[in-house]
């Protein structure tokens, strides 16, 4: 369906104001996203949300600079589709790219910003926070590495 976040933004902008088509599209994204294994759906990977649950795993891919790869899932279908959008925006990016990306603005452009609001308590807001904190952590570790620090970092090579 969609290769990059920019393609997705184009697709959703094309759909315009018809909410049924927009949600149909998001449901399609959710259905295409592979479910996480039960093992990954453990509590440690759970992102706090009241109405639906979201799980998130992160892994660092070596390179210069290293990249972060995320996987996610949700028990809610629409939430899972929105998770898919966030993964498209964040996964495979460098920590710096993640920290610089204005995800709220992107969600505004595709008309879904109210789903990112903390008031929704669907886990998405917390997911963005966690992605950013993982990126900030990785960025800090990389910076330490550049200064010759022995940091036991997830990112390499130094």
């Amino acid at each position: 369906m969609t290769a990059t976040i920019d393609d997705l933004i184009d697709d959703l902008e094309l759909l315009g104001d018809d909410w049924e088509e927009r949600y149909g599209y998001i449901i399609g994204l959710a259905r295409q996203m592979p479910a996480m294994s039960e093992l990954d759906r453990m509590d440690d990977n759970k992102v706090h949300g009241c109405q639906s649950q979201v799980w998130l795993t992160a892994k660092t891919v070596a390179g210069i600079p290293p990249r972060l790869e995320f996987r996610g899932d949700s028990d809610g279908i629409i939430t899972k589709g929105l998770v898919a959008i966030l993964l498209l925006a964040f996964s495979g990016k460098t920590p710096r790219e993640i920290l610089n990306y204005d995800v709220e603005d992107m969600f505004r452009r595709i008309g879904l910003d109210r789903h990112l609001s903390p008031a929704r308590s669907n886990g998405l807001h917390s997911m963005v926070k966690r992605v950013r904190s993982i990126a900030a952590n990785a960025e800090g570790l990389c910076a330490a590495a550049e200064h010759g620090g022995d940091c036991g970092m997830p990112c390499q090579p130094h």
Binding site: S52, I77, I78, T79
Partner: peptide
């Protein structure tokens, strides 16, 4: 096959306010 939250989101689009969750 549909999470309660999904039911709530779609009903909201129809102007219908219900609660979903625990």
């Amino acid at each position: 096959g549909v999470h309660a939250n999904d039911v709530g989101v779609v009903l909201d689009q129809e102007g219908i306010a219900i609660r979903s969750g625990h």
